[in-house]
Design a protein around this nucleic acid. Sequence first.
DNA 1: AATGAATGAGCCTTCATTCAT
DNA 2: GATGAATGAAGGCTCATTCAT
Lengths: 220, 220, 220, 220
Amino acid sequence: MTDQTPRRKSSWKQDPEAVKVDILKVATAEFADRGLSGARIDEIAAKTSVSKRMIYYYYSDKEGLYRAVLEGVYARLRANENALDLSGLDPVAALTAITKATFDSHHALPDFIRLVMIENIHHARYMKQSDVIPALNSSIIAKLSALCEAGKAAGIFRADVDPVELHWMISAMSFYNVSNRETFSHSFGGELHTEDGQNRLRGRVVDAVLSMAVKPEARV
Amino acid sequence: MTDQTPRRKSSWKQDPEAVKVDILKVATAEFADRGLSGARIDEIAAKTSVSKRMIYYYYSDKEGLYRAVLEGVYARLRANENALDLSGLDPVAALTAITKATFDSHHALPDFIRLVMIENIHHARYMKQSDVIPALNSSIIAKLSALCEAGKAAGIFRADVDPVELHWMISAMSFYNVSNRETFSHSFGGELHTEDGQNRLRGRVVDAVLSMAVKPEARV
Amino acid sequence: MTDQTPRRKSSWKQDPEAVKVDILKVATAEFADRGLSGARIDEIAAKTSVSKRMIYYYYSDKEGLYRAVLEGVYARLRANENALDLSGLDPVAALTAITKATFDSHHALPDFIRLVMIENIHHARYMKQSDVIPALNSSIIAKLSALCEAGKAAGIFRADVDPVELHWMISAMSFYNVSNRETFSHSFGGELHTEDGQNRLRGRVVDAVLSMAVKPEARV
Amino acid sequence: MTDQTPRRKSSWKQDPEAVKVDILKVATAEFADRGLSGARIDEIAAKTSVSKRMIYYYYSDKEGLYRAVLEGVYARLRANENALDLSGLDPVAALTAITKATFDSHHALPDFIRLVMIENIHHARYMKQSDVIPALNSSIIAKLSALCEAGKAAGIFRADVDPVELHWMISAMSFYNVSNRETFSHSFGGELHTEDGQNRLRGRVVDAVLSMAVKPEARV
DNA sequence: AATGAATGAGCCTTCATTCAT
DNA sequence: GATGAATGAAGGCTCATTCAT
């Protein structure tokens, strides 16, 4: 390692941003794992590099920390989605890409899924207190709207296709795939959650989404 | 049963079964509303006709009560589904009926949805401890299997249609529709959760399911 | 000891009223000694026969306990005062008796004094929340009013004597005598707080009160 | 003083004395408002121009700051009193002036009153640790002693009048008037604490004090 | 079958104080 | 002189659970 200014043992902590990130990372895992009321501040602190007091120093209280966690995972999911490059793709290919990417990013971010479940159990109470989450969400709808317009203009998409409904369907299956994995597997077997099963499901989702958006005659 | 024995005025509490049902009903609402760790035994007891001690008397502890609640809602959902009469319907009509019924019964049982979410947050831990839930779940798969066979035999269904995948897709959208209603509405508007919106969504779900199961040439 | 029904060791606690009284007694001493913010629930509980939890069981929270303490000491002081029998005394003798009794009862109830000081530091916030304290206070004014009327009717009291002002003056010196004893003694010596000194002061208070109420020519 | 050195723009904090005064001013208000255990170092620091660390730098700890506050208010009260010019006044006029001045200065310094109450709650513990407060207190007694001697020599004052008792009575009513204002007003109405009421009370106090000190025949 | 009283363990939070720069 | 970062100790309060009747 070529860290030329090696921090002395007990002074590396004096980096507020790093400490905040450290706390947030640990808290994300704990809240995702146990929920708001189930998570323990003591437990979070113990897994942190600093003392319990610092949680209150930086995040005021348990709910403040939870809110920060929530905003963090939303930001990460949307960043994932925004990283997707659709330039040069025709409407069908673009919609396929979006669907696959959503399916995959949900699969890759189980903490996000769990925290959104937890939020729903709390009637989205804390999400509603955030003023950054709405902005994060608007971009995906903007992207789908543009896509729908392009598809309709090209005579490929159905006239009644709606971007919010599209997003709803893509999200529904992508989300449920992760959120209900445990109960579904236990009730109906784990076949769908093997690698093969997931690939097959992803194909099913793409098909369902395309069948909603694309005119029958425009499909192969 | 010929239960004619008139209950004495102040002894209605002496009916153990009624007390158990009362507790279970209150507990279902509380657990569904606040989760396992969020629900309070005191709160449940206060909303009950009997004292807190009775909860322990009949259900041993908080987790025992939660398990009973979980089994109760599963039983109710499956009873709903089993009440569906498919006799005399062709495969497409039957699949349509099942899909609509699932969408509707999920919509009608938000407590079930919330408790399943809660279970998933707990990694289905308590569901796995139950020995009555698996039996409840097997019937829906049996029904869909029979349907698939009939559809394939009639040359109407695709050869690769799979009952578990069918159930997965129907459930995914029916479940998500209720489970994520709060966050979805807040992020993308409540349009889809108006009565019109729900009818439209239900149509989308039926279309998606049929497009997965039915051969293109067999659809109108 | 002739306690014929000796309670078994671990069952005497099952007397809610006794437990409440026990807690209140300990809490009165602690709050009087250290104030609302200075008192410690743990400390109070430790000096009690029951566990800390019972404080919350019976008094909800620290402030609830403090309120109960406050009402308790007020009740005790006024009970002291009401025990005074003025029948058969002429106005001057009666006023003298009231003054002496007030001086003495304040002297005998330092906890009351300290708690009223504490209340004043809190801007009488908790006293204002009580609905029993006002009733307790009205009786002393009623008594002085009647006395003033009698004195004026007899041509002995001044025309401008006012019961509230009388009570104010009696209270001021009786209260200060106890409330500021510590600082006064340290600054100006403890002479006034010896038994002789207290007797002398009490005489001074009686003289001052009488000089305010009684016409000069009516005094010896 | 010829402090001509113009302070550099951003270095006004570099004036230790000003910083100390700033801290003390804020601390006085906080301690007077909430008591020793109720006041918060964080709160005091926040209302100060400097950081929390400076409080410890200049006053060692919370108790050190509290002691400084206590000495400060005593000094201010006694300075008030010493500003009183009695030269040229006969004993009765002088005693009247002292009484009125004490009544007024207590009225004008509620922070002093509250801090003395707080001290009494703490059994004058911190006052006893001070070595400047005793000196402050001796002057008022010296003044009253001289006055008593003069009054007696002039044949106007009673033979048994005692300067400490005089100070006690003046203080008692002047102090109580402010210290117990909140509880008294709530219990017996705010009439005595209107401007008229205060003037009337001040007259009552003067009368009581004079009646204790002055021979009856020497009064008008 | 039923209950009011009681509790130990633990949770979130606060506070005066110190560290490192 | 001055500060933001950090903390150990403790404080008020809650919770699932048990006791005694």
